[in-house]
Design a protein around this nucleic acid. Structure first.
Lengths: 135, 135
DNA sequence: GATAGTAGGTACCTACAGGAAAGTAATGGA
DNA sequence: TCCATTACTTTCCTGTAGGTACCTACTATC
């Protein structure tokens, strides 16, 4: 339950946020927001259907919700063109662009994914655990 | 800024992982893992109850699950001491320590949280949206 | 023999995130 | 009149994450 739907008016601090980076993670890396932000950051402006097609597994309902939230948080800018078939464009905002070093750090760390895979296989292969599993 | 680390087009890529940083986010920033990793990273070794008390809102069941996953992924090291009241210690691994620049980038970006708050309030105050909400 | 303290395990249950599918408003074209 | 198109919205429904509560084994201490 990392998401507080109530805006927590004022000074209250959610208890699981004893760590100062949790709110940032909430805003930037909550479900589905990563591929959306990445697409807008990496490939520029997108229409709704373009995002839908790029992130193939997302449903329109969820995509709408996430885009609203990102717009509300000021990370994404929505532009509505009142044309014959309506056209809407989403692009990353200035604030969103400031996430670039963060994304870069993520991409840098991804070199370790192979290591994680190896550790996982090793862990799964032994699966003996001292100090539990007594039955 | 165009970090194109995308591998060869032809090998199957999990669909929501059109963006290469999604797997990293999955491992490092999935639910509850952030405060756990942060605590171990920032304050060193912890016993189970110490973690429980630090992250006040987590339940023991979930804490166990997350710690298992982090251990399996090689980010956390578990040490069991078979003493009279059993004692277990969790600490961050070498691989986990390599997340430091990532955490630093997160912490850096947190200066923008106030900006996000302001944008949110502005968005909520108007809440008029051109191109939708016609009823 | 009751209790406390540790590190969980297990069974059960509920809330909510999110999927599927259909509807909608606007308008030009056939 | 019907269709197509876009960008959603709405309704309904299900899976599962995660919460509550209780249980375990072991020993020291009272």
């Amino acid at each position: 339950m990392t998401h507080n739907t109530t805006p927590a008016a004022g000074t209250d601090i959610a208890p699981e946020q004893a760590c100062p980076i949790a709110p940032v993670v909430d805003i930037v890396f909550s479900r589905w927001t990563t591929p959306i932000l990445w697409a807008l950051h990496e490939y520029g402006r997108h229409r709704f259907v373009e995002l839908e097609r790029r992130i193939t597994t997302i449903t329109p309902k969820v995509l709408t919700e996430r885009l609203r939230r990102l717009e509300r948080d000021g990370l994404v800018v929505r532009t509505y063109h009142p044309e014959v078939p309506p056209r809407v464009e989403y692009e990353i905002s200035e604030l969103g662009r400031s996430l670039a070093p963060l994304f870069a750090a993520l991409a840098d760390w991804s070199v370790n994914l192979g290591k994680v895979e190896r550790v996982r296989r090793e862990y799964d292969s032994k699966e003996q655990r001292p100090g539990s599993r007594r039955n």
